[in-house]
Amino acid sequence: MPDELTEPQIDATVERYVLELARYERVAEIVADQLRRELRAGQQRHLLSFRAKHPEDLREKLRRNRDDPKYAYVLLARNINDVVTDLAGCRVVVYDPEASKQVDAIVQDRLPHAGRPDDREIHDKPSGYRAIHHLVRLGAGPEMLSVGGAICEIQICSVAAHLFNELEHDIRYKPVATPVGADETELLEQLLSVTHLTDSMVRHLERHRREEVHRRTAPLADPGELRYALEQLAGRPLRGDFVRLYRLLRVVFEPLTSAVLESKGSVRQALQRGETAARDRNLDIVDDVIFFALGIMEVHRLVRQFHAVAQSWRGPDTALKLALLVAQRGPTTESEREAGDE
């Protein structure tokens, strides 16, 4: 079994690394550039950082692992990067922990693997450390002579996990001479719980936001969806001819979405406005659909358009049709006069 690393061997390794430090800085920068391009294309919100390992951090790592056969001096001397795979490092911190999976997929699909068994590791350690680690290796083309073959480690984690990871690492490993007390251990555990909770809340918030955006922006496919959307926004059941209302609205809006229904005020406001307009025009038969049509007609200045659609409706005169035809005879608003005719 190889002997543990001696202090002179650690010194020699660190001194050799210092001479190569610029190489690993360049490696990290190149990988970060490629990550930046790929992540921008994938539209992931993230924070990206990169660095070459500080020589003193390497020294501390070698001291912590001096008994590990993987860190044998002969292996370090042969190729330090094969042993210490995070000499060049990039970190991608995402806001939504769910986005870690997408970044993980991007790194797997788009960046060159190192070709090692530990190319990809998902860490969820008893210490609380959470991150996905990838090892990538730069190609060895003629333009990459100084960096070809170098390994770079990519860490992916959420903002909350990153906060814990960094604090936990600093407290447990630095300074070496000060052991971690019971109080600090308990506080770290509480912090870990808070970061898990934060991740969970961010996950829920993002999902809720996506669902809300979809609800508001997905086209309403039929009168039933229109009715459902209006009743949700009004907060109560509504009465009236939703088939005709749907046909009316899709003539003048594209796409017809929940967001359109509230683009110039709430549905409740539109209903109140329409109710006032119906009363002003002494309409005999009214319902919620008529109120909404009149309300949205006013605020969007669609009097002539709605009148034209109502005129095109064949068959017996419905209450909605009559209401829209009567509306045309109402006083013209200032904005309607300004519009004018071509």
Partner: peptide, 13 residues
């Protein structure tokens, strides 16, 4: 427009 979303507009068929 938010990416991948269509901004509603006025039309008349």
């Amino acid at each position: 427009a938010i990416p991948h979303q269509v901004v509603p507009r006025y039309v008349f068929t």
